[in-house]
Amino acid sequence: MDGTSELKIQDLLDSVTESIQRGENTKLERLQLPPPGTEADELIDIVTELDATLIAVEPSAEFAGQLRSQLLGERSSVMKRVRQMPARVHVAAVLAVIAGFFLLWTRRLSDTTTGQDITDEPIAAPL
């Protein structure tokens, strides 16, 4: 490929890329596109595929907010931090609280029973 034709292909690829990105089909139709099977035609196919594949992604709002807070040293409230914790941490915390209450309740129950046992026992008369 000589220098002139290479420059021509470069210009064509540039124009086609711009048109594809802007979704300007009419401009694309006006461009003198190369016949199928030629090198330029194959490259234009790749440009179209790249345009459909390389799509901007958004970082999650949670990540963006947390990182900003960390960078700027902003103090987030306890409730905010708790809300940002994963769901499994929430479940574990609820289970821990329930288990705690259950433990207290069973202990109290056993204390009451023991207390009753003591009071139910006949007091030995002093000799």
Binding site: E6, I9, Q10, L13, D14, T17, E39, E42, L43, I46, V47, L50
Partner: peptide, 10 residues
């Protein structure tokens, strides 16, 4: 570079 990149991808 863009031209060469497209050729390399192809």
């Amino acid at each position: 570079l863009y031209h060469r990149t497209l050729m390399a991808l192809r």
